[in-house]
Amino acid sequence: MISLIVLVVATLAFRLLGALGVRRLAGWRASAAHGLAVMLVVTASAHFVPEGVTVMPTHADLVRMVPPFVPFPGAVVYLTGVLELAGAAGLVLPATRRAAGFCLAALFVALLPANVHAAVADVPFAGEPATPLLIRVPEQLLFIAVALWVAVQAPRVREEGRDRQRAVPSKA
């Protein structure tokens, strides 16, 4: 639920900056891309927090969420943290936003079994009771939808390059 709050607050803050004149954030999609990036930095940080830290979820909390059929759960948690950080970086760069959005949607789909497992197996998270499945799945579906929404309207890298070439006057 914290992830959802971070996403909403960050998106609204970026949209406010856009309304105040920051052209990069003038639209809802760009603001949502940046908001999703902030959320990913926050969630990815938990992948690297050692056990014993009580302020936030830890690596050990996330390892417990990994379904038993997934090999090397500790390494998988580190890998998904790195992928979330890479996705966050990709979202803030217009040239890579499209690819990042589609890749993040795929990552969120891949992470869905961990959320289902954590809810069904009643895995506590950061010392708190497990989040119910009826909250986890819709929240994950929302993250998938936002990642796809951001990706769909982002310019393709080739199109962006062609537009730049057209804008450059010829020397002939």
Rank of each mutant, 00 (worst) to 15 (best):
Glu128Leu: 14
Phe143Gly: 03
Leu133Trp: 13
Ala100Lys: 02
Ala119Pro: 11
Leu142Asp: 05
Gly81His: 02
Ala88Met: 15
Pro138Gln: 05
Leu141Phe: 10
Val152Ile: 07
Leu104Trp: 02
Asn115Tyr: 10
Ala86Pro: 00
Ala147Asp: 07
Ala121Phe: 02
Leu83Ile: 14
Phe125His: 13
Pro94Lys: 05
Val146Leu: 06
Glu128Arg: 15
Ala100Ile: 04
Ile135Arg: 00
Ala105Lys: 03
Asp122Trp: 00
Asp163Val: 06
Gly161Pro: 01
Val146Lys: 06
Arg97Val: 08
Glu84Val: 03
Ala105Tyr: 02
Ala147His: 07
Val123Tyr: 05
Leu107Tyr: 04
Glu128Cys: 04
Ala119Ile: 07
Cys103Lys: 04
Val82Gly: 06
Glu84Lys: 08
Ala151Gln: 09
Ala145Asp: 05
Glu159Ile: 06
Ala154His: 09
Phe102Lys: 00
His117Ile: 01
Pro94Met: 09
Ala105Val: 11
Leu104Gly: 03
Asp163Asn: 10
Pro132Leu: 12
Gly87Arg: 04
Arg156Ala: 09
Gly161Asp: 09
Ala154Ile: 13
Thr96Glu: 00
Pro132Cys: 13
Leu85Val: 15
Ala105Gln: 00
Ala151Asn: 14
Leu79Arg: 01
Ala106His: 01
Thr80Pro: 12
Leu93Cys: 06
Leu134Asn: 08
Leu111Arg: 09
Ala100Arg: 01
Gly127Tyr: 09
Ala118Cys: 05
Leu148Phe: 06
Ala145Ser: 08
Ala105Ser: 13
Glu84Tyr: 00
Ala147Leu: 10
Gly101Leu: 09
Val157His: 11
Leu148Asp: 05
Gln140Phe: 10
Gly101Arg: 03
Ala95Trp: 15
Glu159Trp: 14
Asp163Cys: 01
Thr131His: 01
Glu160Asn: 05
Leu91Tyr: 01
Phe108Tyr: 12
Asp122Ala: 05
Leu112Gly: 07
Ala126Ile: 02
Val120Pro: 04
Leu142Gln: 08
Gly90His: 12
Gln140Met: 13
Leu85Thr: 00
Leu111Ala: 11
Gly90Trp: 01
Gly101Ala: 05
Gly101Tyr: 13
Asp122His: 12
Cys103Val: 07
Ile144Met: 13
Arg98Lys: 10
Ala118Tyr: 12
Leu83Cys: 10
Glu139Ala: 10
Pro113Asp: 02
Ala126Ser: 11
Ala106Ile: 12
Gly127Phe: 15
Arg98Pro: 03
Ala86Asn: 01
Ala95Met: 12
Ile144Ser: 08
Pro124Val: 08
Thr80Leu: 13
Ala89Asn: 05
Gln153Trp: 11
Phe143Val: 02
Gly90Lys: 04
Ile135Ala: 15
Val123Glu: 10
Val152Ala: 10
Gly87Phe: 14
Pro138Lys: 05
Pro124Gln: 14
Leu141Asp: 00
Val137Pro: 07
Val120Arg: 09
Pro155Lys: 05
Thr131Asn: 15
Arg158Gly: 10
Pro138Arg: 08
Thr131Asp: 07
Ala130Asp: 13
Gly81Leu: 03
Leu85Trp: 06
Asp122Lys: 14
Ala126His: 08
Ala151Pro: 15
Ala154Leu: 12
Leu83His: 06
